[in-house]
Design a protein around this nucleic acid. Structure first.
Lengths: 259, 259
DNA sequence: CGCTGTTTTGAAGCCGATCAAAGTGTGTGG
DNA sequence: CCACACACTTTGATCGGCTTCAAAACAGCG
């Protein structure tokens, strides 16, 4: 809605972002994002249509159904995609971490609500211009295809979780997924005792897992009681034994893990 | 597994299929499948590496984890993609109707179990060769991107169903989804009283919806008792009022429907 | 006709939802 | 620097929808 847009503009540092301007070469997601495979000249095309935007925690990026004039890469922070039934029941359908892509090329309106859960910096591309470049630059469209296929695999893993796992298994799976993604992002290993940061509130976790926030709380604490995890403050989680966590997740140990 | 491969070969009419050979121009899915946007010369490239395979109801097309040397378009029939936990709990993660694409380019091994639920005819492409063509023919990769994005949207709609809908809503949603897809495939409308064919057993529906087959049976009959649907034999369903069915599905009436 | 696979129906139990209230922590303003 | 407010989390008690286990009904096919 326009009210949202106004809020966004008001709070929005806009094109003059605090993030290292313009320089794609210095970008932290240069070799992971949609532009990963681009050559220098191709990158220049994107550079010409890009601008940065940032959002505060809790701020809505777009409402499902609203017009969206850009697509974007998440540079830093975490955002969620959610879908809602009339009566308010909400299901998260995407969790966007740095390098993930937001928006659908060729589509004028957003399909889902996108909300920043931490401070988020987006590298935005004007939609029409991006569509044009996409048609011309195979490196770009192939990378986007690759990322979309990965997302589809992740969505299917997620469907298994939603459809067939117990509450306890859902929690364990979620923590394992976050741990893996954080490890991949930071190039760390999960062998030794590792600490991670849950980027979501209990309520957002519930929306991710198709549970209520009370059940999430109970099961998180149950895993803690059973020594599978340790809690550090509200968001921190220590994993003394990652393999144990995976056992609790219901997946087969090594798992047909995709990424 | 190789045992499976043997079974498949044994039962498989193979390259000499009963389907109208070779002629892409006569293909019933010519303008819907991955090849939809291809020009005549591009089509010729695909024609050079393609072959048909058919499968009987219940027959496995590939096992998750197994080697897969081809990708394919479903020409006729219905196939499912499923994922399984060690203890046997299974969740369907894909329902492939005519024109849908099977397999992931660039990936050597299948991620999911693919099973024919009716007699299925596949138009197969040797994987390596297909990958090469994909790199050379933008019409092909763009169409594949488009189809993958559609599948991702469908997966996310499915996640909402799995995570947040009641058993009754799940059944109503499922019937509505099938009705829409059949209508789109046959170019029919859903306004008037229409009859559809459920391509799945109660058990397969349960795997689709994250329910037990008993619950599926009970809720289907509940919808029948309430006059939302009528049953014709085991697989046939008559929809006296599609709007009523959609109400029961929990989605908002017109729905942010994607395709 | 009897076999097999599928669907329906029934009864009981459990897991997660719901409703309610107390606890924790963080930031703000007095 | 403390106290309050607010947002989030934890804990408790009860309820209900779906699963589970069991068996009967049904349909298709040799």
């Amino acid at each position: 809605m326009s009210a949202q847009t106004l809020t966004q503009i008001k709070h929005d540092p806009g094109a003059v972002s605090s993030h290292g301007e313009g320089r794609c070469e210095d970008c932290p997601i240069r070799y992971r994002a949609v532009c990963a495979h681009c050559e220098t000249d191709e990158l220049a095309l994107l550079e010409g249509i890009k601008f940065y935007r940032s959002y505060e925690p809790g701020q809505t990026i777009v409402w499902g159904g609203d017009r969206m004039d850009f697509v974007a890469s998440v540079v830093t922070g975490v955002a969620t995609l959610t879908q809602t039934l009339e009566d308010g029941r909400t299901q998260m359908v995407g969790l966007l971490l740095p390098s993930d892509f937001l928006g659908r090329p060729g589509r004028e309106r957003a399909t889902y609500n996108a909300v920043a859960t931490t401070r988020v910096v987006l590298c935005c591309f004007r939609r029409k211009a991006f569509d044009d470049i996409l048609r011309e630059v195979p490196h770009l469209s192939h990378r986007l295809l690759e990322m979309t296929l990965d997302e589809l695999d992740a969505a299917r893993e997620w469907m298994l979780l939603l459809g067939r796992k117990s509450a306890r298994e859902k929690i364990a799976s979620f923590i394992a997924i976050i741990a893996r993604r954080e490890a991949a992002l930071n190039g760390r290993s999960l062998d030794s005792r590792s600490e991670i940061d849950l980027p979501l509130t209990r309520e957002a976790m519930a929306d991710y897992l198709g549970l209520t926030l009370e059940t999430v709380s109970r099961q998180v604490n149950a895993l803690k009681r059973d020594g599978v995890i340790e809690l550090v403050g509200k968001r921190g989680v220590v994993l003394p034994d990652f393999a144990r966590l995976v056992e609790e997740s219901g997946d087969d140990a090594d798992g047909g893990w995709i990424a």
